[in-house]
């Protein structure tokens, strides 16, 4: 199924105020892969994500989703294939009830009322949030909001799932639940995060972004133990990889 492919070819982008956010990004993600994108604050992760469904357009270079090249006419179709879960669930959930929010996307796909309702039910059931259907988002906990955010995107049945900082501000248990939820998805997944342990748990492959460029690309297991590479990009070893060192430290002192 070739339309599960995301490909960036030498993508450049700068904001209207002149900030160069992407300076030649190239990579290719194929069907069923789960890829982590890591990098310091301001490295360009969010800008990169906004290119994946054409909210931003490359100034130079090209973005391909499946067989389709991203441009203004294909943008609408690409948005149906790539589902993005944004960082802040309060931005993601803009409708006044959970049901209306999850139904928003499917309604835009032009489905019948019955089909929309079925999709909403299935999506909410998958994230274990059916009971929240009629609640307004401001009555939900952050963990619940995060689950519902994911459901809003699942209801569109995208080929590729993209998430920006899915675990930000979650308490440990909600974070654990999120990780097991993510591991159940057989989609192509792209996850941008500072939470390197989460990336290690969920992703096989990892891209390091720095200064608007791809600094490294390879198996997550290899990249996330490369201390000098991570340091250069203002990152640190994941806790699970550094624990042994911390304990020796304790003994020495």
């Amino acid at each position: 199924m070739s339309h599960h492919i995301i490909e960036f070819k030498d993508v450049h982008f700068s904001y209207p105020d002149g900030t160069e956010a992407l300076r030649g990004v190239s990579f290719r993600i194929t069907h069923g892969e789960s890829v982590g994108i890591v990098g310091a604050n301001g490295a360009g992760k969010t800008t990169l994500i906004l290119h994946m469904n054409g909210y931003l357009m490359p100034r130079k270079g090209e973005v391909r989703i499946g067989d389709v090249q991203l441009n203004r006419t294909t943008r609408a179709d690409i948005r149906k294939k790539v589902g993005i879960v944004f960082q802040n669930p309060d931005d993601q959930l803009f409708m006044p009830t959970v049901f209306d929010d999850v139904a928003f996307g499917p309604l835009n796909l032009g489905l019948s009322k019955e089909a929309v309702i079925e999709r909403v039910h299935n999506a909410l059931a998958r994230v274990d949030a059916l009971g929240l259907k009629d609640k307004p988002p401001h009555h939900l906990s952050l963990g619940q909001k995060r689950s519902v955010s994911i459901a809003t995107v699942l209801a569109m049945q995208p080929d590729i799932l993209v998430m920006d900082e899915p675990a930000a501000n979650l308490d440990p248990r909600s974070r654990r639940q999120l990780i097991s939820l993510l591991n159940e998805f057989k989609h192509s997944k792209i996850i941008a995060s500072h939470d390197l342990d989460l990336i290690l748990d969920v992703c096989e492959r990892c891209l390091v972004i720095g200064n608007g460029r791809v600094m490294a690309d390879g198996p997550a297991e290899d990249i996330l133990i490369n201390e000098s590479l991570l340091k250069e990009n203002s990152l640190e070893l994941p806790l699970s990889k550094s624990r042994s060192r911390v304990s020796t430290f304790d003994i020495c002192s």
Partner: peptide
């Protein structure tokens, strides 16, 4: 700025200028 992020979220869920409600 928040309204700009919300607009991104709306767009990425297939918004085409028409709001549909069940």
């Amino acid at each position: 700025e928040r309204s700009e992020r919300i607009y991104q979220a709306i767009c990425s869920r297939g918004f085409d200028g028409r709001i549909r409600l069940i």
